[in-house]
C-alpha cells in the first residue's frame, strides 16, 4: 500500500478522499486511530482476541458505511461508536443467557466508596517503570464493573464529551455522570493503595 505521504493531511480531506475510493487515504485514517481503537476494545472486552476482532470489524464497517458518516461529528467519534457497539455485542454473545446490558440496574446506592484517604507522593508514577505503571492502571480498570468501565474509558481515556459518551453507550446524561463519578472514585481508591505516601496511612475513615 502506498506512501506515508498522507501523514500531514487533515482528517476531513482523508475522509473525502476515502469516499472517492482512495484506499491509501483510508489506510492513513486507520493508522491514525488503530491504536486507540484497539485499546478501547481491550478495555471493554477484557480479552485480546475479542479486541482484535473488534478492531477489524470496526474499520471494515467504517469502510463499508463511509457514505453514512455525516461530517458533523468527528470521524474518530463516529468510529468509537462503531467500536463500542461491536465490543458490547461480543460481551453479550459470550454471556449467553445472561445479557450484559449497560442499562441493567446496578446497585449504585448512596454509599460512594471512599475508604482510603491518604495523600499521594509528589510523583508516585516515578516509583514505577512505564510497564509497571501501565499494568497498575490497566488492572485497576479491569477491576471495575463493565457499566462503570465503559463510561470511564470513553470519558477519561478516549476523552469523549459527556454527550458523546451518552450517545455511544445509549445512556442518559445523568447516568453517564453518576457512573463516571463512581468509576473515578473507585479507581482513585485502587490507585491510592499503590501511590500513597510511604508511612502515611489513612487520616480517618469517613
Amino acid at each position: 500500500m502506498p506512501a506515508p505521504t498522507q501523514a500531514g493531511v487533515d482528517e476531513s480531506t482523508l475522509v473525502a478522499q476515502s469516499r472517492e475510493g482512495n484506499t491509501s487515504a483510508f489506510a492513513e485514517l486507520v493508522r491514525r486511530y488503530e491504536g486507540k481503537i484497539f485499546r478501547l476494545a481491550q478495555h471493554v472486552t477484557q480479552n485480546r482476541e475479542d479486541a482484535e476482532d473488534v478492531l477489524q470489524e470496526t474499520f471494515m464497517k467504517a469502510y463499508e458505511h463511509l457514505d453514512q458518516f455525516q461530517g458533523n461529528s468527528k470521524f474518530y467519534t463516529w468510529i468509537v461508536r462503531i467500536a463500542v457497539n461491536q465490543a458490547l455485542m461480543k460481551l453479550r454473545r459470550k454471556k449467553t443467557g445472561k445479557t450484559v446490558s449497560l442499562d441493567e440496574t446496578i446497585d449504585t446506592g448512596e454509599d460512594t466508596v471512599v475508604r482510603e484517604i491518604a495523600a499521594w507522593d509528589e510523583n508516585p508514577e516515578q516509583r514505577f517503570s512505564r510497564e509497571e505503571l501501565g499494568e497498575i492502571l490497566d488492572s485497576a480498570i479491569q477491576g471495575l464493573e463493565p457499566p462503570y468501565r465503559s463510561v470511564f474509558v470513553l470519558r477519561d481515556i478516549e476523552e469523549l464529551s459527556t454527550e458523546e459518551t451518552a450517545d455511544a453507550l445509549g445512556l442518559s446524561i445523568p447516568a453517564v455522570k453518576s457512573r463516571l463519578l463512581r468509576a473515578r472514585l473507585q479507581l482513585r481508591e485502587k490507585l491510592t493503595r499503590q501511590f500513597k505516601r510511604k508511612g502515611e496511612d489513612a487520616f480517618a475513615y469517613l
Binding site: 484517604i117 492502571l137 477519561d156 473515578r184 479507581l187 482513585r188
Partner: peptide
C-alpha cells in the same frame, strides 16, 4: 485529599 487524588487519577489516565 480525595479531591486531589481523584484529580490526579484522571490526569494519570489521560496521560497514558
Amino acid at each position: 485529599v480525595i479531591f486531589d487524588t481523584t484529580r490526579r487519577t484522571i490526569q494519570i489516565y489521560k496521560g497514558m
